[in-house]
Write a protein that binds this DNA or RNA. Sequence first.
DNA 1: TCAACTATACAAGAATTGTTGAAATATACA
DNA 2: TGTATATTTCAACAATTCTTGTATAGTTGA
Lengths: 123, 123
Amino acid sequence: MEKQTATQVFESLSSGIRLDIYRLLVKRGLEGMVAGQIASALDLPPNNVSFHLKGMTHAGLVSVAQEGRYQRYHANLPLMLELIAYLTEECCAGHPEQCAEIRTDSCCPEAVLPPLPKIETES
Amino acid sequence: MEKQTATQVFESLSSGIRLDIYRLLVKRGLEGMVAGQIASALDLPPNNVSFHLKGMTHAGLVSVAQEGRYQRYHANLPLMLELIAYLTEECCAGHPEQCAEIRTDSCCPEAVLPPLPKIETES
DNA sequence: TCAACTATACAAGAATTGTTGAAATATACA
DNA sequence: TGTATATTTCAACAATTCTTGTATAGTTGA
């Protein structure tokens, strides 16, 4: 993962509105939501939501699929995991035992974190 | 985790400089680094690094310990894992099977993703 | 084709953030 | 005590971001 990708993703989630959008989409999972639904659910002006969705899409945090006149958005969960790997990938280089201790705590009890796969998104 | 905590952490990592600082500290693990070392390593003015470290500390992303006239900073990795849990905690509520599918893809090949543990940090 | 609907694009103002230089605080050591 | 070092704080300017209103593009169905 490139540094710019990481900062874009983090910037996307640094806004309360975008964080709400992302968590809403995560909650919906594969079903996703159309733009209007998101705006209604969060009680925000559609153009404002569209503004934020554009940035999130550009960052790869969400993907969009056209459905007639609707645009359906989905959360890109694999990217999030890829991001975590990026943040901690060099940790194990210097002190594997410390990192393993911390990281296996909450996710992979026995696995020593394989390098996460690069996942393609249409952006 | 509260929403504000999450947005503060993400905002902390949305800057290239702060991301560099964080990854540097992750790389160092428990050893950490003093402020001057960080500034030298990244070739940045000390007051600028101090500015960014202040925000990161406030967000809980890094912790600081005084060592004589030095201040040693450490990355707070458990908070990062707590953050991931926050992002995905409601995913499994609605559609457990979808989330498991997505998440096990890149992290826990055989585990069906137990609800991620809430990790306490001093914030 | 026309009208209604969904969504995005654009522009302007307010608000926030980032960087730099100078000054201040605190510790270490002779 | 006095000086050097490490780090932070403060002020000011440049740059960016957020929100809102208006306009535009594309889709649907009669």
